[in-house]
Amino acid sequence: MSTHPTTPAQTVGPYLHIGLPWPDGPYAVAEGAPGAVWIRGTVYDGAGEPVTDALVETWQADPQGRFDHPDDPRGARSHPGFRAFGRCPTGADGGYGILTLKPGTVPGPHGDQAPHIDVSLFARGMLHRVVTRLYFPEEEAANAADPVLNSIGDPDARATLVAGAAPDGYRFDIRIQGDGETVFFDV
């Protein structure tokens, strides 16, 4: 097999809004769909200031833990009306919001994983994306058994990956640097 070296990443820069947001980006599922929840949060920099030129993307399983993708060995399965992918730029307050369905349990190499959403963050001033995961606060037992969460030794760090409850969904702030710094993954 020939191995071709990969293309380097570069920052989205300050003008990402020209190319990346989609009108339907924040809606992984339509408004009013049964079970739809908002995931909202603010992105903060190392000075605690909101980051107003970032883009948040989410990718996840459907409520049955399935993916509409040919590489899932269980078979691709679509969940009608559900895109499983969300994309939202941050606003003038550093906030973002994505309307989605709560994912189901997803099998991992060593048993089940707790319901989770993979999150990518792009921004001016970030030469490459960073990746984190969102877990759900009501899933205490599943979270306690989750191998990825358990690979993080510091409980305060681990807690940065568990969303807060909100009236219409969940709250998931992302702190890029400093106090309460979100756990990011080498993906």
Partner: peptide, 21 residues
């Protein structure tokens, strides 16, 4: 002010990571 200070945690590639929209 926009780089994490903590080293990244290794994420094994599971179904969520090997799929995409």
């Amino acid at each position: 002010l926009r780089h994490p200070r903590r080293p990244p945690t290794l994420l094994p590639h599971t179904l969520t990571e090997i799929t995409a929209p």
